[in-house]
Computed example of a mutant assay.
Amino acid sequence: MNLTPTEMERLTVFTAAELARRNLREGVLLSHPEAVALLVDEVMLAARKNMAYDEVIDHAAALLCAEQCEPGVPDMVRIVAVDASFPDGTKLVTLIDPIARGDNDIRPGEIIVGDEPVELFPGLQRVSLTVVNRGDRDIQVRSQAHFFETNPALEFDRRAAWGHKLDVPSGGGVRFEPGIPVDVALVPMGGARVAQGFSGLVNGSLDADGALEAAL
């Protein structure tokens, strides 16, 4: 039996859809590929059964609910477009949000915050510095940067900044506009206190003997 690429894809979709049906029977929540395969297979089957276009969409929209899928899956399946073979020709069937989200469904990438504020770097001693950008364009420093090694156009007490980084949440930063003094708070870098890269002034332990003087 010789199969065309389209027929091979159809068999792949059917196999994945059968896996999804088995999982549903066993009470196993569907993953994203399984949910999509089930929706596509049912659309293509309904089209072959000569169901009306609107009936096909209504049928697919009633197949799954959020409780049958892994958390986050309904929000990942926003649009499903299927070229389905109807008796009168191929038509594009588009499903919009075919899996209704549950009240407590988690959205991928969603940030779930607690009831209490989170204290950044509790117990660490802060260092306050005034920084002036002596360059001619904005300079932005990110949260993970070893502040001592930031752009030479930034004027501040470099010695006091040794082994410190900005007291901001991870991924945040501070922008320094030319000529405008900015007060910043720094906290000691934690972990193994090894600085690699940046301006290449350390590339080793921040606490090694002579490291600060060598960098200066």
Rank of each mutant, 00 (worst) to 15 (best):
L38T: 00
D97R: 09
P122N: 14
H59M: 12
V80N: 01
P169I: 12
S31F: 04
M189E: 10
E7A: 15
L24G: 00
V131D: 02
A153D: 14
F156Y: 14
L29Q: 07
S170G: 04
T150M: 05
S199H: 11
A215E: 03
P188G: 05
I180Q: 11
G123L: 08
L154P: 01
F198A: 09
P169L: 11
L166I: 05
L120E: 10
A20K: 01
A145Y: 07
M51W: 08
A61T: 08
A215W: 06
N2G: 06
D103C: 07
C65W: 00
C65Y: 00
L212N: 02
G191Y: 10
L19F: 08
M51G: 06
P178N: 05
L166C: 06
P74Q: 03
G102C: 11
I112E: 01
E149V: 14
V187P: 00
D75K: 04
R22G: 06
L166S: 10
G179H: 01
P117V: 15
D88E: 08
A145Q: 12
Q68H: 04
S170K: 05
D157F: 07
L45Q: 12
L166D: 04
R134M: 09
E7M: 09
E9R: 14
D97I: 11
F176L: 08
A214M: 12
D157P: 04
S85P: 12
G190Q: 09
L39W: 03
L11C: 06
D58L: 12
L206I: 10
F176N: 01
G163C: 05
A211H: 08
L30V: 04
S143M: 05
L166A: 06
Q140R: 15
M51R: 02
G89K: 02
T94P: 02
A66S: 15
E149K: 08
L206W: 07
I79L: 14
L11V: 13
C65V: 15
